[in-house]
């Protein structure tokens, strides 16, 4: 079942086309990665999705139809530019934002106490938000986003400004939400985080969809025609290997067209090379990202 579907949406700001014919869909319960370099159109896509911006063309289907007032209470959104009232105590800030999502004062109190305890913020709940550190405010923002237990969670750069301990805490929280069946859209340019958490991604650059699909499929698509080998022996000349590229204790063997990795493995075994590692080279998401953004495309 589809939780979100964007069909051919376009949005311009003056002469700049921020989003250009973007389409993708997200399944219910999925942890989906929305990637792109700065200024690629990620945030604009999210704002169109959330009905903050109206698209010039295209349509958005959210939780089974167009956005309605009632649906707003089923969505949690944490924007990249964090927004909390600075001059009021943290508990009152959470109470107001929670009440706008349809929670009663008692529910807000109960749920925020749990989250504040979990995020080590219980002792600071009566402090003004501006008196909290940047990291604390970041955690408070996460609480405000989760307080009403949304069905669809949209988090824009959730790890920005967090130390490794808190990054892990937020990551665990996202995985926990995912396990509970919450649909999550993780918008980030921290590729390793997306790689770790998401099964499917869409990569946007200059307002256009550059990559879209299952992460493993995309990596395979970008894997090229090479294998990575780790061995203590000196590597002999191998049939079908065009070039050997040394790496960090490994060797990357670039294969000639028509040569299969299995043929190379057989040849290595036949020549009694003691193999410590043999694997088909798969690019990291970082590498894929750079290649796409720099316009290098899929390796031949």
């Amino acid at each position: 079942m589809t939780a979100v579907e964007l069909s051919h949406i376009s949005k311009s700001f003056g002469p700049v086309k921020a989003v250009d014919d973007v389409s993708f869909s997200i399944e219910k319960g999925e942890l989906f990665g929305l990637l792109g370099p700065n200024g690629a159109g990620k945030t604009t896509s999210l704002r169109v999705m959330l009905d903050i911006f109206k698209p010039e063309s295209g349509s958005v289907d959210l939780l089974g139809g167009p956005m309605t007032e009632a649906k707003k209470d089923r969505i949690g959104y944490m924007p990249e530019e964090r927004g909390l009232y600075q001059d009021i105590p943290l508990d009152r800030c959470l109470a107001y934002l929670g009440s706008l999502k349809g929670l009663s004062p008692a529910e807000v109190r109960k749920r925020s106490d749990v989250y504040l305890e979990r995020f080590d913020l219980a002792a600071f709940k009566t402090k003004k938000v501006k008196e909290l550190s940047k990291g604390m405010q970041q955690k408070a923002q996460v609480i405000a986003t989760l307080l009403h237990q949304p069905e669809l969670l949209i988090v824009d750069e959730p790890f920005g400004g967090l130390d490794p301990v808190n990054t892990q805490m937020v990551k665990d929280l996202l995985l926990e939400q995912h396990q509970q069946g919450v649909t999550i859209i993780l918008c980030s340019h921290q590729m390793h985080q997306v790689e770790e958490l998401c099964d499917r991604i869409v990569l946007i650059d200059h307002g256009k969809v550059m990559l879209y699909g299952v992460l493993e499929d995309i990596r395979r698509q970008f894997s090229g025609h090479s294998v990575t080998v780790r061995t203590g022996d000196k590597l002999p000349a191998l049939e079908g290997v065009e070039r050997v590229e040394p790496g960090n204790g490994t060797l990357k063997l670039h294969l000639s067209p028509g040569t299969l990795p299995q043929q190379v493995l057989r040849s290595l075994v036949a020549q009694n090379i003691a193999l410590e590692q043999f694997e088909i080279s798969m690019p990291t998401l970082d590498e894929i990202f750079i290649r796409v953004v720099q316009g290098k495309g899929v390796e031949a």
Binding site: R47, L50, K72, I75, P79, G83, Q86, D87
Partner: peptide, 17 residues
């Protein structure tokens, strides 16, 4: 102006019209 400077406006607009 203050809500805009605090950047809380975008959060509010996902809850209220």
């Amino acid at each position: 102006s203050k809500e805009k400077e605090n950047r809380v406006m975008e959060v509010l607009l996902t809850s209220v019209t």
